[in-house]
Simulated scan of single mutants.
Amino acid sequence: MKVLIIVLVILLTISVFRYFRQRTYLKTLTEAQFIEGYRKAQLIDVREPQEFKNGHILGARNIPLTQLKQRLIELRKDKPIYLYAQSEFRSARAAQVLHKNGYQDLSHLKGGFKKWTGKVK
């Protein structure tokens, strides 16, 4: 029983640490903030191609999280990157990958595409 409690405390500590660390390099933007800046940024949809085909934010490029490491060359490090997925989970994971590879100006959409009310294609 003690071992289980120790393991749970360690996992919780790691999760909290990652959450706060991520906040140092990833901005979470409201829809209004996202709309205000995404035309000047690289707008990346990290969902899978079928999800992208079913609807996406106008002007977005589809680079699925599963392909991101192989397609880093398609992204510029000198321009902001705006990420989104269905919710916030995959875009946060994508930001983690990008941050580890030297990308700095990273933002993602609060609530993800499912909360988006702006223009879609």
Rank of each mutant, 00 (worst) to 15 (best):
M1A: 02
M1E: 08
K2V: 13
V3L: 12
I5R: 11
I5N: 12
I5P: 06
I6V: 13
V7S: 14
V7K: 15
V9C: 12
I10G: 15
L12S: 13
S15E: 15
F17T: 12
F17E: 15
R18G: 05
R18P: 02
Y19D: 15
Y19E: 13
Y19C: 15
F20G: 10
R21F: 15
R21H: 15
R21L: 13
R23Y: 05
R23T: 03
T24A: 05
T24S: 03
Y25A: 04
L26R: 05
T28W: 10
L29M: 11
L29S: 07
T30C: 03
T30Y: 07
Q33A: 14
F34R: 02
I35T: 12
E36I: 10
R39C: 08
R39E: 07
K40C: 11
K40A: 12
A41G: 14
A41Y: 11
Q42P: 08
Q42H: 06
L43T: 02
L43M: 03
L43P: 00
L43I: 04
I44C: 08
I44A: 05
D45Q: 06
V46S: 00
E48S: 06
P49W: 05
E51W: 01
E51H: 12
E51F: 07
E51D: 06
F52L: 07
K53F: 13
K53C: 14
K53E: 13
K53I: 11
K53D: 15
N54F: 11
N54Q: 11
G55M: 04
H56T: 12
H56D: 14
I57Q: 05
I57R: 01
I57G: 00
L58G: 14
L58M: 15
G59Q: 12
G59A: 12
R61V: 09
R61P: 11
R61D: 12
N62L: 03
P64D: 10
P64H: 14
L65T: 05
T66K: 11
L68D: 03
L68M: 05
L68N: 05
K69Y: 10
Q70N: 14
R71N: 08
I73Q: 09
I73H: 15
E74H: 07
L75V: 08
R76V: 14
K77Q: 15
D78V: 03
D78A: 08
K79R: 10
K79Q: 11
K79I: 09
P80K: 03
I81C: 09
L83F: 04
Y84N: 02
E88Y: 07
F89Y: 10
F89E: 08
R90I: 00
S91L: 01
S91M: 04
S91Y: 00
A92W: 00
A92P: 02
A94G: 01
Q96Y: 12
Q96T: 14
L98H: 00
L98T: 02
L98D: 01
L98K: 00
H99P: 14
K100M: 12
N101L: 04
G102S: 07
Y103Q: 09
Y103P: 01
Q104N: 13
Q104R: 09
D105M: 02
D105A: 00
L106V: 02
S107D: 06
S107T: 03
H108Q: 01
L109S: 10
L109K: 09
L109C: 12
K110S: 07
G111A: 09
G111L: 10
G111S: 09
G111W: 08
G112D: 00
F113V: 08
F113Q: 13
K115F: 06
K115H: 14
K115D: 11
T117W: 05
T117Q: 14
G118W: 07
G118F: 06
G118I: 03
K119T: 03
K121I: 13
